Simulated assay, not measured.
Amino acid sequence: MISIVVSSYQKHYFEAFSESVAKTIGTIPYEIIQIWNPGSMGICEAYNRGAEKAKYAYLCFVHEDVLFKTKAWGNLILAHLQNENIGAIGVAGSAYKSEIPSSWSIFKTYNALHILQHYKEKSKRPQIIKQPNNVDLFQVVALDGVFIATRKAIWKQFPFDEKTFTSFHGYDVDFSLAISQKYNLFVVFDILIEHFSQGNANNEWLLESMKISDKWRKVLPATCVNLNSGEEKRLKVEAKRRFEKKLSILNYNWIKKKYFKLKYVR
């Protein structure tokens, strides 16, 4: 009953991923839809192509450099998504997304993660990140794209925006914000995956994060928690500081001078 969609370009990862799914998903019917994508299309287009081919009612969009550590996780996905108020679930996300271009993860207080993460630094051992502890579900407004499960009917309402997001960044936050306008999103703590890479906040990422701020200007900042005015101001100031630092690191002074002040400081 689950169609698993993967934008794939590394054969060894995909083979290990497929074997992991077969050993852990449980007894429910499933299919893996591999969209071969060695940079020939953005991930939004790849995911939309895969979802169009899917024959089952539940969709799981997953990176190929992932192994599943939980047994019968397919049944857990179905159990979560039986609740019609839940639009999507994941293993990492945040209850706050700033209007300033940024990652979903910049404010740890509002984050939720349940993942066995590997790091770029070879000297740093992989570790399970579980935040917060002692909860089963944590409501968020943005999910990380490493793992997102939803119903096909919801994807049909909110397909990935392949016209706006043409690379491999921004698609997850955009997809989350679209779904969250009508449904609730949750990070779940009964599914654990092992992830072998980290994100890359490069120039391409920066431009895509700016697109999110432009597209969702009327919605952002987005949150599912109550914030007082002092906290709202603090988060905005901190997001602005981090954005300006990223502009400096990536040598985007022209954006800082001609674009940032006009569009992101109200």
Rank of each mutant, 00 (worst) to 15 (best):
L177K: 02
I249K: 07
Y47H: 08
F147S: 02
K182N: 11
I100W: 06
E84N: 14
S213N: 08
A222D: 05
D136P: 02
L76N: 07
K233I: 09
I255G: 00
K261M: 12
I179V: 15
K257R: 14
W205I: 13
S123F: 10
I154N: 00
I100D: 04
G230K: 13
S105Y: 14
D136Q: 15
F160C: 00
I2C: 04
G87L: 06
Q131K: 11
D190P: 10
F165I: 11
R234H: 11
V135L: 06
Q127S: 10
H63S: 12
A222H: 07
V237N: 12
F14M: 07
E194W: 01
V187R: 01
S229M: 12
F168V: 12
A46P: 06
G199M: 08
N200W: 07
E31L: 07
S8Q: 08
N48D: 07
P29I: 06
I179E: 02
S229V: 11
Q34F: 00
V225P: 04
T223F: 05
S20M: 05
T109S: 10
I86C: 02
E208V: 09
V5R: 03
N200Q: 11
G39A: 03
I193Q: 08
A112M: 02
R266A: 10
I43E: 01
L76M: 13
K97I: 11
S123L: 13
Q82C: 08
K53H: 08
R49T: 12
R151D: 09
Y119R: 10
L185N: 05
G50E: 02
W73H: 11
N200G: 00
F196E: 08
H118T: 10
V140E: 00
G90M: 01
S20H: 01
C60W: 10
T70M: 12
I4Y: 02
F160L: 03
K233T: 14
R266E: 13
F175Q: 04
N75E: 15
I106K: 07
E52S: 12
A51V: 03
S3G: 10
N75M: 12
R266I: 11
G50N: 07
L143G: 01
V140Q: 03
S229N: 15
S197H: 13
Y30A: 06
A149N: 10
Y119I: 09
V219A: 05
K258D: 14
G145D: 03
